[in-house]
């Protein structure tokens, strides 16, 4: 019943109205409403234009569905601004500028801030740590003199 133009138009309006919601929640909401419409049409036993219009009218305007959905969530502005906190900014600054001006120490202190943050997931923290430790290990080993012997070296 997805090919019903009225239903597609309604779901399109719902998706447009749901832009403030998180992408995952938006997809979920459209799916839920689609299932609801399908169930109502199956229950009605027909999918003619009048029945579809009745079902959609009973659901109400897409904007109202989104408004009701948004009431249970944080406002979108606060969610957007909450992606970056002081800890995340300090971590990124230490990893970039800190790596240039405070070699070795800067990135490692930056990693401490990364692990202190609650906005990055555990896999993201692990990957970032692996990148820093992996790439810093090479110069540390070079400075410590571990590596292939230089050609013409009389050592040993």
């Amino acid at each position: 019943m997805d090919d019903e133009p009225l239903v597609r138009d309604y779901l399109g309006r719902l998706e447009s109205a749901a832009w403030p919601l998180a992408a995952a929640r938006r997809t979920e909401l459209v799916g839920e409403v689609r299932e609801h419409i399908d169930a109502a049409l199956t229950e009605a036993g027909r999918a003619d234009e009048v029945t579809v219009r009745n079902v959609l009218e009973r659901l109400g305007p897409p904007e109202e569905i989104v408004a009701a959905e948004s009431e249970g969530e944080a406002p979108p502005q606060s969610r957007t601004s909450s992606s970056w906190g002081a800890i995340e900014i300090i971590a990124v600054l230490l990893l970039t500028v800190g790596a240039v001006f405070i070699p070795f120490v800067g990135p490692f202190v930056g990693l401490v801030f990364v692990w202190a943050s609650t906005r990055w997931t555990l896999p993201e923290k692990l990957i970032a740590s692996a990148i820093v430790i992996g790439l810093l290990l090479l110069p540390i080993l070079a400075i410590l003199g571990v590596g292939p012997p230089q050609p013409g070296c009389a050592c040993g």
């Binding site: 992606s83 971590a91 990364v114 906005r119 990055w120």
Partner: peptide, 30 residues
């Protein structure tokens, strides 16, 4: 290892990790 490579790798480590973390946060916001 050449000094120039060492000097390049030190900031690269932090910058690569920072780029990864920034992309992770930006992607989640969408």
């Amino acid at each position: 290892m050449d000094v120039a490579i060492v000097a390049f790798l030190i900031p690269l480590a932090g910058i690569a990790a920072a780029i990864f973390l920034v992309i992770a946060l930006v992607r989640r916001r969408r």
